[in-house]
Simulated assay, not measured.
Amino acid sequence: MTRYLSRSSIDEGLSTDVRLFCFPYAGGGASAYGRWQRNLDAHGARVRVLPIQLPGREGRMDEPRFTDLHALIDDMDAQLDDELEYPHIFYGHSMGALIAYSLAWRRQQRGAPLPLAVVLSAYRAPHLPAPQIAHPEASDEELIESLAALGGIPQVLLNHPDFLSALLPVARDDLLLCTGRPMSTASDPLRVPLHLFAGRRDRLVSVSEVVSWRRHAGRGCEVRTMPGGHFFVRAHEDTFLRELAALTRQYALVPVAA
């Protein structure tokens, strides 16, 4: 069993549906996508949601975290190789977009099966500087303030020190991961369709910076804007999942009945 997927996720994924591998944002874990299967089903999606669990958080809390993007992608590529033999789509939000694209690009480089599509939200293309949520040497208070302003920490949890003490080391390491050398170049675009989502009021990543992924798209690129800021996937979850469900139906293995 791959460390990046739970046993139940793998078992549930054995169906005629396309697999939707979901990569978390900085500081996040697989639980960020815990409600997606039910909600996407309600919107008529034909995908099996498989949340990716990175080391050093939630069920993998005792494992060392990666701070080097290339090392993480090497490990994921090896661990997920068997699961990626089945028809699948990658989805990543913010840091997850960087990871999803980098994994797809790495697999393209070695001739492995590619996703049917890659869906990316709230992140800049790899030829641009990584978005900086906070200075690397920011204090805990400054980092909490920056994350809360973006919507990365729900207000209800700001007064829970145990939660914050567990979150901050993960967030710091994830921010280091994002500042590493990009995996790909615009001269070697990804040979699968790219679907991009941008928050209209995102103060960290602008719509034009999301659109810049077009330079890396070798099989077409579609851009959709969403209400809300950087974490529109939470603040406007139902609206976003309705859009995502419609998108994934384009890649359904079994045609949707009229």
Rank of each mutant, 00 (worst) to 15 (best):
S121T: 09
A235P: 00
R46F: 07
M95D: 07
P131D: 02
H135K: 14
R60I: 07
S8D: 10
T67R: 11
P255T: 10
P169S: 03
P189T: 05
S146T: 08
H216F: 15
A42D: 11
P115I: 12
E63T: 05
A30Q: 01
Q108T: 10
A112R: 12
E137M: 11
G34M: 05
F21A: 11
C221S: 13
V156R: 14
V256S: 10
P193A: 03
P161D: 01
P24A: 07
A122Y: 06
A148G: 02
I52W: 07
D238K: 09
S121Q: 05
V205F: 09
V156Y: 01
D202H: 11
E83N: 10
E137Q: 15
I52C: 08
R124D: 01
D202I: 09
S15E: 03
L80E: 04
L177N: 10
R65F: 00
L69A: 09
A32P: 00
E142S: 15
G180H: 08
N39I: 14
P169H: 02
P55F: 13
R35A: 13
L54N: 10
S31D: 08
T16Y: 08
R107A: 08
Y4W: 13
A125F: 14
R200Q: 15
S121W: 02
L190T: 02
D74F: 06
W105G: 04
I52E: 04
H127D: 10
I153S: 03
S212Y: 00
F163H: 01
A258C: 06
S184R: 06
I99R: 04
P113F: 07
P126N: 01
A171S: 13
L158Y: 07
S6P: 01
V170Q: 02
R60G: 08
L40P: 05
M183K: 00
E137L: 12
S31Q: 14
A166W: 00
P55E: 11
R191C: 02
R219I: 00
R19G: 04
Q79R: 13
T248Y: 04
L40M: 13
R35H: 09
S15V: 10
H93F: 09
A71K: 12
A122P: 07
L54T: 12
Y101R: 09
C221F: 05
S165Y: 00
L98N: 08
G29T: 10
Y86R: 15
E142K: 15
P113Q: 06
D174L: 01
A198T: 11
E12M: 12
H93I: 09
D62G: 00
P87F: 13
A138Y: 05
R57K: 11
E237V: 03
P87L: 12
A186I: 13
N159C: 03
L196G: 06
E12C: 12
N159H: 15
L247E: 01
D162S: 13
R234P: 00
D11C: 03
L84K: 12
A186M: 10
A171D: 00
